[in-house]
Design a protein around this nucleic acid. Structure first.
Lengths: 282, 282
DNA sequence: AATTAAATGAAGGATTCCCTTCATTTGGAA
DNA sequence: TTCCAAATGAAGGGAATCCTTCATTTAATT
């Protein structure tokens, strides 16, 4: 089993193969990912040989049959995909100090943030927020820190941002919402019932709902218009919101990019106010 | 990218599915890569439903059959894989993607967190907090998110934790402080005057002060007994607190390690309370 | 409680696919 | 050229898999 990759295996045995088998080996080597899903007949067609020759290559490479070779290729594809997420996080699980483990796990989560599907959703969220006349932000318990942070950062670059504090009565703030408003909810396990009910109300009234949550099908993920996810590493169980904060930062950065002039104007206004009120120690 | 991802498709139709189909959809959504190679029977086995239900899900999602759904999943896996290799090889130095820039910067900060010698300071903070009879936490404006997070996490593993809310009158809470108490302040530029005054008061009364700040000689850093720093990368100027959250996580993890039995006892107590109050949606 | 509709699972047919066997072709040596 | 061995492809058996049909169970409504 040998950690040798399939590619290596082909290279090692290549010289011993027959002409037809070399054709197949070459094709597999150059199109391994696509070949992972093809049948022996299809592979033979692509390599301009018969199905039988493909099967014979399997034996020549040391497999019990084509099925076994295909399984090997498929698992290789899976590993390649999860190489980042699992291999680097499993090893330091026990042997190194706890701090390093936490940090490496966190880096892992950050990398997952900028996968393609996520990035598209983030841009959608950015556009929606830029167009919105108001932004209402909610998040309780564990999620409140992220909600507050988002509220704080968003307030620094635009106006009409409201945070639903866990203690305050947020129902009153709903009366101001229009069809152009956006509600952003943060919801992570263990999901707060308050947040879920709030989200359901928003969805029922056809107001745009952006959910920042741990998976697409979480209670609020199911009903939201836009869903941004940060996978909590189930292994550790330690659900940190550091990656959520970074996700928020991405949204803020996106708004910065797309709405520069308004952002700058708003910040200047705030600067003036802060200095006159002497809030900060310079 | 005209192709809606399979994940999105599942989410859109999820509410219309039957109970058994939801099981399958959930399983697929959470193990999509591995499922790409499994048969309908195997998927049904994993999702605890029959093979038939898996096939019916295919129809419910709009496919011509299970085979077509499987092909879609497989092609999605291929695309994801291509995206990864392109991203990492094509643009190694030019970060045209603003999101990637933010994330890489954040990873940089995280690594500095454990490379630096302030690991010792973290352990000191851990020991101090474990011994303390009370922990008072303060942080305003930008730092409040981190303060709240720390307060929330610390409350989940020990008692007598108090957060100085920005609106509340925290002066009253000072009357309870003893010589065995600890005050943790979060202070990042631009430094809030309220926080600084609070810290000065604590220092004058010989109560242990832990500062989480951006440099040793920041306003609160100068007067604190223990100083934990997270360098804000001056280049970007975007002062995120994601690394501060991670720093907090390190402290929490440290307490976990050194004070296990008390932590577990406290969490069990909380669990009981939460379930009886029905706070969370399981 | 009774009825009905939907959902689920079991079983069998139909298809696809892998694998083996056998015939044909290719290439090289006597 | 003739012979032989290796290689290749075609065809059929057998296994796995998908799909449909039918009976049972579940859930909801009257």
């Amino acid at each position: 089993m040998e950690n040798v990759s399939f590619q290596q295996l082909v290279r090692n045995k290549f010289s011993d193969l027959s002409a037809g088998q070399k054709k197949v080996a070459k094709y597999l080597s150059e199109n391994l990912n696509q070949a992972a899903f093809k049948t022996a007949f299809q592979i033979g067609r692509q390599a301009a040989v018969s199905e039988t020759t493909v099967i014979r290559l399997s034996y020549a490479l040391g497999f019990e049959g084509f099925s076994e070779m295909q399984t090997t290729i498929q698992q290789g594809l899976l590993q390649e995909n999860q190489a980042d997420s699992e291999n680097s996080s499993r090893l330091p699980f026990r042997n190194s100090d706890p701090f390093k483990r936490v940090i490496l796990n966190e880096i892992q989560l950050l990398k997952q943030l900028i996968n393609r599907s996520n990035v598209e959703e983030i841009w959608k969220a950015v556009d929606t927020i830029i167009k919105a006349d108001q932004v209402l932000i909610a998040g309780h318990m564990l999620s409140h820190a992220a909600a507050y942070w988002f509220s704080y950062m968003l307030s620094s670059i635009r106006d009409h941002v409201t945070l639903c504090s866990p203690t305050g009565e947020f129902l009153e703030k709903f009366s101001n919402l229009t069809k152009d408003s956006v509600v952003v909810v943060f919801s992570f396990p263990r999901y707060s019932n308050d947040t879920i009910k709030l989200a359901e109300y928003v969805a029922e009234n056809d107001i745009c709902l952006i959910a920042v949550t741990d998976r697409l099908l979480s209670p609020v993920g199911r009903i939201a218009n836009i869903v941004l996810t940060t996978e909590e590493n189930a292994q550790t169980g330690s659900n940190s919101i550091a990656s959520v904060i970074s996700l928020v930062d991405l949204i803020i950065e996106g708004i910065h990019e797309k709405d520069q002039e308004r952002v700058q104007k708003h910040q200047q206004k705030l600067d003036k106010m802060y200095t006159s009120l002497n809030v900060f120690n310079e």
